[in-house]
Design a binder for these strands. Structure first.
Length: 421
RNA sequence: CGGGGAGUAGCGCAGCUUGGCUAGCGCGCAACGUUCGGGACGUUGAGGCCGUGGGUUCAAAUCCCACCUCCCCGACCA
């Protein structure tokens, strides 16, 4: 992409009232824009990051045999009345009547919808297990939206649902999801820790939350300073200032954290209420055993920025960066420099790399500062300082390290350099 | 919903206490010139229902009342 014609509205100052670093940087770097409280637009740069995170999630979900589908967010309230969650989720549910006066809502989550779907198509144990997932917009009229896209009223979630004939199958799928979640967060360069959690409005017995401790967050985790054991959920309250129940040696340190994902062994809460049954090999009717597994996809963007930034801006991990490389020609008036920049741009796209070339006619300082702000991991700086000697500079956004390369080596070595970022 | 703060140009702010003439400043934006490796400089210019509605007054950004919106702290959640 050419910066001059690409929509990246960067800002020097953070908008008033923003507190979280990730919120400020996402706004300043032109990734998101607020429409109203808790409702955000994703601008081209933000959408690129979102897409890369979604790609990672899809790969890991598909790898454990989950199948992607896409459910409606426009939903009849009667499905929610079957489980009673029209009442338990009443606070956050956005409800309205359609033209015929029918009660409708915008889906705050999708357990009822998927159970209704599966009920219609699964009749036999031969069709189980089944694991389905989607990446979808959820609507929750949050009591208090916070920290930009960390808690939004309209947000993107990956939600997966497992359907098994017995508890053993559920436990197996639960473990597979657990493993996939660890991989997803690791690939996003997030230091997530899994803690046992309360099931809350979802229901069921066992559940785990994946938390990333940091400067902000709406949750808290306790971490033992001796054995490293992490605890969350109800334990945060009950064990605060206590000694570690795991090793009995260390004390527990409280840290705020962002909840990235939550997995639940639901059991039969929904299948029973909605009549999702199957026949076993003896012709006996059984209730499907369910699990559900959520990741706050849009929230991950904020969590990554919260974990990877410095005073100058965002430092994208290469796995989720909106571009692989930024090409920064310093002297626009120098035709040799511009030609080389254009050649790199062509070469990189031939190599399958996403490059952003800053072809704006602005001073070097503006380009350097904006480059730091939007945080592309690797930067090729072409300027007269080194151009005359046939060299260009490669700068690592994270370390600040600058390497000089012969101008003809760049295209052949760039992939290797990106790998090492 | 309870408690606190704030709405003045695209963004950041001053002015309000003690009403008064054409509502200012910085950034950004447009044009021209000089600059050109870490947010350059000069000149000129465009851009405002001062959150909304009502009231007080000769006169309201400023005083009074009501409402709306946003942010921060609590309960909820990915």
């Amino acid at each position: 992409m050419r910066w001059s014609s690409y929509f990246i509205p960067t800002a020097k100052e953070a908008p008033v009232g923003t507190e979280a670093v990730s919120h400020q940087l996402l706004l300043r770097a032109g990734l998101i824009h607020m429409l109203t409280s808790g409702v955000y637009s994703y601008l081209p740069l933000g959408l690129r990051v979102l897409n890369r995170i979604q790609d990672i999630i899809r790969e890991e979900m598909n790898a454990i045999g989950a199948q992607e589908l896409f459910l409606p967010c426009l939903q009849p309230l009667e499905l929610w009345q079957q489980t009673g969650r029209d009442k338990t989720l009443a606070e956050v549910m956005i409800r309205f009547k359609d033209k015929r006066g029918k009660d409708m809502c915008l889906g705050p989550t999708h357990e009822e919808i998927i159970t209704d779907l599966v009920k219609d198509f699964v009749q036999s144990y031969r069709q189980l297990p089944l694991v389905l997932y989607q990446i979808q917009t959820k609507f929750r009229d949050e009591i208090r939206p916070r920290f930009g896209i960390v808690r939004a009223c309209e947000f993107i979630m990956k939600d997966a649902y497992s359907f098994d004939r017995d508890k053993k199958g559920l436990e197996r799928n639960y473990q597979l999801m657990y493993g996939a979640y660890e991989k997803i967060f690791k690939r996003c360069n997030l230091n997530a820790i899994a803690v046992k959690a309360d099931s809350g409005a979802m229901g069921g017995d066992i559940s785990h939350e994946f938390m990333v401790p940091g400067a902000i967050g709406e949750d808290a985790v306790l971490i033992c300073n001796a054995c490293g054991q992490a605890m969350g959920g109800a334990q945060v309250q009950s064990l605060e200032n206590g000694s570690c129940p795991q090793c009995a040696k260390g004390t527990l340190e409280k840290k705020v954290a962002i909840e990235l994902g939550h997995i639940f062994q639901l059991g039969t809460k929904y299948s029973q209420a909605q009549g999702a049954n199957f026949l076993d090999e003896n012709g006996q009717q059984q209730t499907i055993i369910m699990g559900c597994y959520g990741i706050g996809v849009s929230r991950l963007i904020a969590a990554v920025v919260e974990s990877h930034n410095d005073a100058a801006g965002i430092i994208w991990p290469k796995e989720v960066a909106p571009f692989d490389v930024e090409i920064l020609p310093v002297q626009m008036a120098d035709s040799g420099i511009m030609e080389l920049a254009e050649n790199y741009y062509q070469d990189l796209s031939r190599l399958g790399l996403e490059a952003l070339i800053d072809d704006r006619d602005v001073t070097a300082g503006v380009k350097f500062n904006d480059a730091d702000l939007i945080g592309i991991p690797l930067r090729i700086v072409i300027g007269k300082r080194t151009f005359a000697e046939g060299k260009v500079e490669i700068k690592n956004r994270r370390t600040g390290e600058v390497m000089k390369l012969g101008k003809d080596e760049v295209s052949s070595k760039i992939k290797e350099l990106i790998e090492k970022v």
